[in-house]
Amino acid sequence: MNPAIEIRGLQFRYPDGKEALRGISFTIADGECVGLVGPNGSGKSTLLLHLNGLLPESLPKDPNVLVYGRALCRENAAEIRRDVGLLFQDPDDQLFCPTVYEDVAFGPEQFGLEKEKVRTVVTKALETTSLLGHEHRSPHHLSSGEKRRVCLAGVLACEPRVLALDEPTSNLDPRGKRNLIQTLKSIPATKIIATHDLEMVVELCPRTIVLDQGLIVADGSTHQLLGDEKLMLAHGLEKPHILRHKHPH
């Protein structure tokens, strides 16, 4: 079977000249859960935007992002967007509809599902994120944790095979974080999680990729990499507490 994500020598420079990605290659197998860590400005978010073709603005002739063996190009961008669900950093950017139901239904409706099918998919997504009963609330009446869960439901309703999450636990209180981690655990999709929350990485992701200044500096077992105090400090990170008492042998 083809790997879920395959990236070959990906480079990207923003219009203002800032070089965000400087030649990145890796593959992620189907069903894998990978943590993407690195200091601010290391290129994590930029990388995630490439996974479903939001960047670069005009897709290149020679694609270097493959999703389930299909190269991401202009012709199949729509199809691939359906396969890769992206959870954005700021839930306010992603929750653009006036009610929870409309927002979760946005994706399926855009993909042309019929009304009844949309309803089933939305209900299922709301159930997974334990939001049933909140359908008619407006986003501005929700708490941060609820907003984040609605965003996740909106992504899940598109039934993606790969979930790309950008800082899913930022701005959440400990309980909200716990709920979110439990929800993510219950979702079988391939996951790639960009975050500073290393405790969550330890809990969810067997594998970690460390990114710094647009380059992959390490890629391997989470326990090994995050337990390596030197590596962590060199790239603006910190050995998580859970690993403090364990020795990486």
Partner: peptide, 15 residues
């Protein structure tokens, strides 16, 4: 700036 990000989020869900 937010409009740009919203556009990205809308596109990501097939707009």
């Amino acid at each position: 700036e937010r409009a740009e990000r919203i556009y990205a989020a809308m596109s990501a869900r097939g707009w």
